[in-house]
Amino acid sequence: MARAVTNRRKAIVTVAAWLVGIAIFFPILWILILSFKSEGDAIKTPIEVLTSNWTLESYHTVQERSDYFRHFLNSVILSVGSTVIGLIIAVPAAWAMAFVPGKRTKDVLMWMLSTKMLPPVGVLVPIYLIFRDLGLLDSRVGLVIVLTLINLPIIIWMLYTYFREIPGEILEAARMDGASLKNEILYVLTPMAVPGIASTMLLNIILAWNEAFWTLNLTAAKAAPLTAFIASYSSPEGLFYAKLSAASTMAIAPILIMGWFSQKQLVRGLTFGAVK
């Protein structure tokens, strides 16, 4: 008896959850469908859209007319580049703070976090002028620098929360056995830290890929990543729904897949360890 009730309850929850899930996911599903339609069909009523022919036309057009791949490459270079450089700077810092904490370690961490609270628009003018004078406007180098710096606090924090969970005794044992600092890092710490570093990397690539304040303000054409490329569809000419859908699908697909793998780390990274 109790079991039947549970099953009925489970069925009701299942229906409700799926309905809500599909409703939330629907816009993404819809652009996926539109991206395989011709421009003429993409603006028709939903029934006509679903029954019309499927085509890869829009994907071709997006690549040929607007050099989609270059923007894609810019996005990859910016997000991966800034993440790798960020990690090179952050790993030693987080390691030191987790394993050799001093009196002021906590203050340093909190201060780093506070730089993240600075609203970007508050420093937009000086950064823009500095970039203009150094010739960094619309350059990949300039954007990699900015993206590295805005995400550095998150990288350090995430790594710190991971490193803190590694038992210090193991490091002490290695030290007692005569391991040098270099060997300690290379052979003891690194293997244990790799999962944490990997998830930090994943989350940071996602954040950098979707960053849409600096990438929109500091690029024009040459270094424009996908965020800026898609923004160019805000003042289109003629029919463009299928093309916008195709470009959008390609812009979000890689990050959507990565995101699904990093759900758990996302919570931790974005709340600076406050919710695990």
Binding site: I24, P27, L216, T227, I230, I252, I255, L256, M258
Partner: peptide, 15 residues
């Protein structure tokens, strides 16, 4: 349910 969070702001706004 999680998917929209990974959609870049320019895409979700334009869509």
């Amino acid at each position: 349910v999680i998917a929209p969070f990974f959609v870049m702001p320019t895409v979700s706004a334009l869509v």
